[in-house]
């Protein structure tokens, strides 16, 4: 046997993530863990998240305190668990705001009459010119910092990008061969929109939703990190970061570990979203 083959033909990149089911299962396991933490925090926590114990203040991670303790001696791991519910709600809420807005803007841009769609297109482009965090900051400046303003700010901040995606999807479906085939069969416009264009264009929304929840939590925690989110006594993850910020030099774990939790959650959501995307694309291509 002689291997004359040279590395020339390669697998398409999309096959790769889909080919690793363990990544998919790991992502689901991680997400399930956080769902349980959000619904039954007591089942997973090891300490009372609010119990102060100044004797144990700024204790590094140990067998007793998995994530260490904060300046008041509260167990950080338990605080993270108890903060899950609010953090997830902020992420899901922001995603709901974002995708609703994106759906309205994207559909109008792709489907409204000539003049209206041109106007909506411009609005999307203007909003897209603002980076996500900046748009969110602008909104926080107007509304004032709170959990609710985080939901709105992050939701609006991420909406323009998704609006562009949805617009593109609808335009692609509108321009497709199967829509033309349906016209040739004599189907009316509204029927085609309902039966071909929207179902195909909105298919990736599931994947986008998963991706977006992870991203929203990251953006929301970024606002909190800047002191523009939920106020510190709360165990919400961003608030934990904000509180731990002052102790970076003495107690790095106070920011590193809650940050790690956010990274893990965001990564799991991204992985799940990409898998769904790949499965959908496999059906289409």
């Amino acid at each position: 046997m002689t291997a004359l083959g040279q590395p020339l033909l390669t697998k398409p990149v999309s096959a790769k993530l889909a080919a690793t089911p363990w990544g998919f299962f790991l992502a689901i396991a991680v997400l399930l863990f956080f769902v349980v933490a959000a619904v039954f925090p007591a089942a997973l926590a090891t300490h009372d998240p609010y119990a102060m114990n100044f004797a144990n203040a700024l204790h590094p991670p140990s067998f007793e305190f998995w994530f260490g303790t904060d300046e008041s001696g509260r167990d950080l791991y338990s605080r993270v668990i108890y903060g899950t519910r609010e953090s997830l709600l902020i992420g899901v809420g922001a995603t709901a705001v974002s995708l609703s807005l994106a759906l309205v803007l994207g559909s109008l841009a792709a489907l409204a009459g000539r003049f209206a769609s041109a106007a909506v297109n411009r609005i999307i482009e203007v909003l897209f010119a603002f980076p996500t965090l900046l748009l969110a900051l602008l909104l926080v400046a107007v509304i004032g910092p709170s959990a609710m303003s985080q939901v709105v700010a992050v939701g609006v901040g991420t909406a323009p990008g998704y609006a562009r995606i949805i617009r593109g999807q609808i335009l692609k479906a509108k321009d497709s061969g199967y829509v033309e085939a349906a016209v040739a069969l004599g189907h009316p416009r509204a029927w085609i929109l309902r039966n071909h264009v929207l179902p195909n264009a909105l298919r990736p929304l599931v994947a986008i939703f998963a991706l977006s929840v992870g991203q929203s939590i990251v953006w929301a925690s970024s606002l909190s990190f800047l002191g523009l989110g939920v106020a510190p006594p709360s165990p919400e993850w961003g608030a934990l970061l904000d509180a731990g910020k002052q102790y970076i030099t003495q107690a790095g774990w106070l920011t590193v570990l809650p940050g790690l939790v956010i990274v893990v959650l965001a990564l799991a959501a991204t992985t799940l979203g990409k898998h769904i995307q790949n499965i959908l694309e496999k059906d289409e291509k």
Partner: peptide
């Protein structure tokens, strides 16, 4: 392509 040795990465060539 085998004649110029560019069959592909996963190719097994025997002659």
């Amino acid at each position: 392509r085998t004649i110029v040795g560019l069959t592909g990465a996963n190719a097994v060539v025997d002659a």
